[in-house]
C-alpha cells in the first residue's frame, strides 16, 4: 500500500471510527439518545463530542482527521499534476487552498468543544464559533470535492484518467450537491422540522469521507519516493 493510499484509507476510517466511538460513549452515558442518526436525526455529530470522556476521543480523532484531510488535498494536487501530460493546473491549486483552509476551520471548530460549553445559553459565542467554522468546513469541503470532480471530468483526456476512476467521485459529488441544494431549499422555504438538519449533517459528513476514499484505487501507482533513485529500486511506501 503506498503512502497516498494509506492517507485515503485513514481519511475514511479515522473520522468514522472517532465519531462512532464518541457517539457510542455519549449514548452509553445517557448524554445523547440511542437511534440511527442517519434516519432519525436524533442528535448532531457535535453533540457526541461534548461530554467527557467521549469528547477526548472526538477531539483527538477529528483534529487528527483534519490533518489527514490536509495531506489528502496535498496528495490530490501532486497527483493531478503528475498524471497524463504533467502540467501546472491553477484550478487545482485554488481548490486545494480552499479545502486546506476548510480543514483548518475544522481544527478550530473541534478545539473549542467540551463540557465547558454547557449550558449553551451561557456560552453563545463559543457555540456560534463552533457552528460557523464546522458549517464552513462541510460546505467548502463539499464544494471543493464537487468542483474537483467537475474539472476532472472536463479534463479527463488531458489527465489520462479512465471514466471508471471518476464514476464513484461523480456519484458522491452529485449526492453532496443534492443534499446542499435540498438543504438550501428547506432553509429558503422555512420547511425545517426536527432532525432534518442533523440528518443532512450525518449524510454530508459520510459522503465527504467516502469521497476521500475514492482515490484509494487511483493512487496504486502514486507513491512517495526519493527522486535520485531509479524507479525499480525505489524505496517506496
Amino acid at each position: 500500500m503506498t503512502l497516498p493510499q494509506r492517507i485515503a484509507l485513514v481519511a475514511l476510517v479515522l473520522p468514522i471510527i472517532s465519531i462512532a466511538s464518541s457517539y457510542f460513549m455519549s449514548a452509553n452515558a445517557g448524554h445523547v439518545d440511542w437511534c440511527l442518526p442517519y434516519i432519525d436525526g436524533c442528535t448532531t455529530i457535535t453533540a457526541t463530542g461534548i461530554f467527557y470522556p467521549a469528547a477526548y476521543v472526538f477531539r483527538a480523532g477529528l483534529i487528527s482527521s483534519a490533518v489527514v484531510f490536509i495531506i489528502w488535498w496535498y496528495c490530490v494536487r501532486a497527483w493531478l499534476e503528475s498524471v497524463g501530460h504533467p502540467q501546472h493546473h491553477p484550478w487545482i491549486h485554488r481548490i486545494v487552498t480552499f479545502a486546506i483552509i476548510a480543514s483548518m476551520l475544522l481544527v478550530a471548530s473541534i478545539a473549542v468543544l467540551g463540557e465547558h460549553m454547557e449550558p449553551p445559553s451561557e456560552h453563545r459565542f463559543l457555540w456560534r464559533f463552533h457552528t460557523t467554522t464546522a458549517g464552513l468546513f462541510f460546505l467548502i469541503t463539499a464544494l471543493c470535492q464537487i468542483m474537483m470532480t467537475w474539472r476532472m471530468r472536463q479534463l479527463q483526456d488531458d489527465l489520462g484518467i479512465k471514466f471508471s476512476r471518476i464514476a464513484s467521485k461523480q456519484i458522491l459529488a452529485a449526492l453532496q450537491l443534492l443534499l446542499l441544494a435540498a438543504f438550501m431549499l428547506i432553509l429558503i422555504f422555512d420547511l425545517k422540522s426536527d432532525g432534518v438538519e442533523e440528518i443532512f449533517e450525518w449524510w454530508l459528513a459520510t459522503f465527504s469521507c467516502l469521497y476521500f476514499y475514492t482515490t484509494y484505487h487511483d493512487w496504486r501507482d502514486f507513491r512517495l519516493t526519493r527522486r535520485e533513485q531509479q524507479p525499480l529500486q525505489e524505496a517506496s511506501l
Binding site: L3, P4, W79, T225, R226, R227
Partner: peptide, 8 residues
C-alpha cells in the same frame, strides 16, 4: 528536497 510524491 527530493522526497516527492510521484506517479508511475
Amino acid at each position: 528536497k527530493r522526497i516527492r510524491l510521484v506517479h508511475y
